[in-house]
Design a protein around this nucleic acid. Structure first.
Lengths: 113, 113
DNA sequence: ATAAACCGTAGTCTATAGTCTATAGTCAAG
DNA sequence: CTTGACTATAGACTATAGACTACGGTTTAT
């Protein structure tokens, strides 16, 4: 499919898709036409982009998501250990919550001093 | 004092001090020498920089801190209402905590699915 | 046949808070 | 008198995740 269709099907802008492509996060991209320079984005990219959006909800960086994709690509048969990935992200989130709680308490202290 | 001393006394790098200066967050800066271009940073800047570092701990942006300084400069006699400033920042922090908590819960859900 | 919609590349811009580099002049110690 | 430390200015670079622009070519609908 062309980028427009991919954009429509994922509700992600062309610009953003092109960014993901530049970052090497998509696959199965070809240029099947001789008379123009249009690209063809394979069906798998719909899933990829949905996966990106899903992981972003948990504050994964694009770089981190790309690493997961790369691991999968390097070893297509091996199952990616999602549990560990999410667990380590959970630790990060909990640490951030801890920091923010400290900041909040300090702020409350200031206000009530 | 020259920038080096200011840097030493505040533990803030020269570059960072120059950034604050470019952003108009410092005051009492003069060029008292005719034979060179060295600047003289007034004593007040030690406090200013400490104040910046202090407010940054509560996730105030430089821009916000500058606004506080500007308000103070515009009206030196009037006391800045710190309480309100910190109270509104507290709301932001608590909202962030709320968001992070949601993310954390969703992550835990995934892990234990 | 022409306009609208689409596609490609490349580059710039946003916010944030600095850091680093280059260039050039100055000061203090040996 | 030279070396090292210090200073000034300006501009480029870092990470992050896109948005937006310009320019030129293509496809589709009227």
């Amino acid at each position: 499919m062309k980028i427009g269709e991919l954009s429509r099907r994922t509700s992600v802008s062309r610009d953003t898709i092109r960014l993901y492509e530049r970052l090497g996060m998509l696959n199965e991209i070809s240029r099947p036409f001789e008379w123009n320079t249009y690209k063809d984005y394979g069906e798998a990219n719909v899933k990829r982009i949905r996966c990106i959006k899903y992981m972003q909800r948990f504050s994964f960086k694009l770089k981190e998501i790309k690493e997961v994709f790369d691991a999968k690509d390097a070893n297509p048969n091996q199952c990616v250990d999602k549990s560990n990935i999410f667990k380590s992200k959970l630790q990060v989130i909990e640490q951030e919550i801890g920091e923010l709680n400290k900041t909040r308490d300090a702020l409350i202290d200031i206000i009530n001093h």
